[in-house]
Design a protein around this nucleic acid. Sequence first.
DNA 1: AGGCATAATTTGTCCTAGACAAAAATAATT
DNA 2: AATTATTTTTGTCTAGGACAAATTATGCCT
Lengths: 294, 294
Amino acid sequence: MPVQFSISDLERETGISRDTLRIWERRYGFPAPQRNQRSERNYSVEQLERLRLIKQLMDSGMRPGKLAILDLQQLSQITQQQRETQTVPRDVEELLQILATGPRYGLLARLEALLQQQGLRDFLIGVLAPMNHAVGEAWFAGRIGVLDEHHYAEQARMVLLTALRRLPQTPGNSRALLTTLPGEQHGLGLLMATCMLALEGVEVLLLGVQTPLEEIVRGAIEGECSIVGISCSEYMNRRTVATQLVRLRNLLPDTTVLWAGGGGIKGIPAMPTGIQLFSSLDQISTALQKSAAR
Amino acid sequence: MPVQFSISDLERETGISRDTLRIWERRYGFPAPQRNQRSERNYSVEQLERLRLIKQLMDSGMRPGKLAILDLQQLSQITQQQRETQTVPRDVEELLQILATGPRYGLLARLEALLQQQGLRDFLIGVLAPMNHAVGEAWFAGRIGVLDEHHYAEQARMVLLTALRRLPQTPGNSRALLTTLPGEQHGLGLLMATCMLALEGVEVLLLGVQTPLEEIVRGAIEGECSIVGISCSEYMNRRTVATQLVRLRNLLPDTTVLWAGGGGIKGIPAMPTGIQLFSSLDQISTALQKSAAR
DNA sequence: AGGCATAATTTGTCCTAGACAAAAATAATT
DNA sequence: AATTATTTTTGTCTAGGACAAATTATGCCT
């Protein structure tokens, strides 16, 4: 029984817009779905899988025109090659194992043990950051489900919030506002950044995900925050992120620093001055020390 | 300087698709945005506001054809009428005051004091539940912004998670899986329900927001959960909620109980047997005691 | 008057095919 | 080798038409 997907389904599942899917079909001849009586597109599981792979490879900088020609085998070969170049820490591998096979209730305990063992800073940089990436990839490859992804996020959130409340609440020397752009669903990176900043004694005004730009500006001004931090996950569209960051920069007062980090800023082209991109968490510490020295 | 929005912006901000926006313009003459040199639509802030109101009213069952004719005044008048005149507890009023006027960093302390004073159960029922409603309403009326709403949610989340971890971790007699439906953004109600269940000694598998139905089912089966709980905020479309709940019920094994609660289930018509709707948090306790007695 | 089948209307999603600017790659120049 | 100009690639927007699913109105029977 062949399962078929509508163009809406594909948009949701792959993150590629309808418009783009249609124009790829026109230009590259892929994906060329079957049509129903109403001449609507009906995509197959194979096409979905192939598009998932293409999207993943695009996020690491490749171009759709080249990828659309390749078949499933060639695509997964490239993916394989890419994956082999990066080493996954042993702890992360173990966590993934727990996530994929259970027992479900053991994840929290393992996370807490690792936190205890490594300390918050190393835990964030050495465990959670690579784990986030690995979880996203495992989901993409179909090795785990949305369910497992959510479960991981929730447990990690819990561990971090607990750790955060344990930190000494010193009246900070500076203040930061942290949130995500409209459209961004993932809030875990936000919490991780909050922890990094709190470790450096910065007072954090944590807003959840998806704050409208105007409200970010209001919050920064009213809360007298010298730093505005934006977390972008890998699932976000690069161009949207870039455009919105520039717009935010223009709306913010010149005295406010704008920082952006997370998997979603990889592959973003040059940013105008006044927007600082962080490709890893530990850059936060050094940036803070620099700005404190000034 | 008039701020202008593209059709993509509007899709993101209002949740109304491009296609729908364009066809409303064709059919009802609203919204009729200005065009730039490239004859692309440029929407004004007024149009955005009006569409936001329309979306809200649609979610409570009204039809776009009727609403699109009305101007901003008429729309807000209907909204006004819809709003029930109800008494707000004094604590909630005070919290709203803090939220609206600051100091921003005082909210957490006040929430914690109330929790300490009233105990978790009464805090949930007497403070957070009415506060959630009041915050939503205050935002709708323009008395507070998205910023304040997010700030409140984040602080409340922090208080609850801390409280949750303080509860004795008894090996529960039964297990529940808690999440929201796809499309639902608000996760605070979820955390509140988790607390209520944990108070009754139920082991909770907390997944964040927006879990696909199939994944909910898988989680319930794999995690051997006898209860599946769904939280629906007032911002959700009633019809969508009803349809999805029924679909979920059909996918779940008969032995699993399906519970739904939150502001979003008010006004939902009769549900088939096997779906239990909770209009307030304390119904959770009684329902649990009933099912335990069996 | 209430229940129910049928017709009319409303509504959202999908379609084709063309246009064009922004980004990226390539070529040409200093 | 670094800049600048040109070409190619790519995604988003436009228009108006079509149609099914959902909703409301209508007629008919009990």
